[in-house]
Write a protein that binds this DNA or RNA. Sequence first.
DNA 1: AATAGGATTTCCT
DNA 2: GGAAATCCTATTC
Length: 186
Amino acid sequence: MNHDFFARDAKAVAKELIGCELIHKESTKLIGRIVETEAYYGSDDRASHAFSGMTDRNKPMFKKPGKAYVYISYGIHNILNVVTGLNGNPSAVLLRAVKPLKGLERMKENRRINEKKELCSGPGKLTEAFGITKDHNRIDLIDSNLWIEEREFKGKIVRDKRIGVSNGGKMELRFYEEGNSHVSRL
DNA sequence: AATAGGATTTCCT
DNA sequence: GGAAATCCTATTC
């Protein structure tokens, strides 16, 4: 995936990321197929961290498309986003769930569980399975050991309201593969 | 300097 | 279905 792919409207990127592969290469190679994403914008999106302008935390959202924005949620979970961007406006796509394809054993160790469906079926779950932490914040997802590869997608995509956000409004910015059991919530 | 609350997960009943 | 876990950030006094 190149920078141009991410330098577009977050909603379009979120939708097209469904079916692509998230790859993390460290000692072992971990691969998951993206089955669920959400788009977040800026001043026009009350649910977004960037709603009230730039702060220390959300700074990556204002930076170059293709960068990672990782933050800690509820003091416990690392949450992974890809920065997107149209006209330099702050925006990002949250990676909510992937279907484990490769490195299952390592993911099970990281998650301390065995059920495949529970490994990556949520934003906090997939970062734990992949070993993604705030150390990955602001890294470039094009030329680091964490990246996304384009894949043809033949399934059907469902669009819905985002999960877990207050002031989410009526905007339907969540995308997921219809019927896929690795989605956090069908 | 202090405090309120979260783009969640897990465990218990 | 409900609440605890847990800590960092942003906001307020």
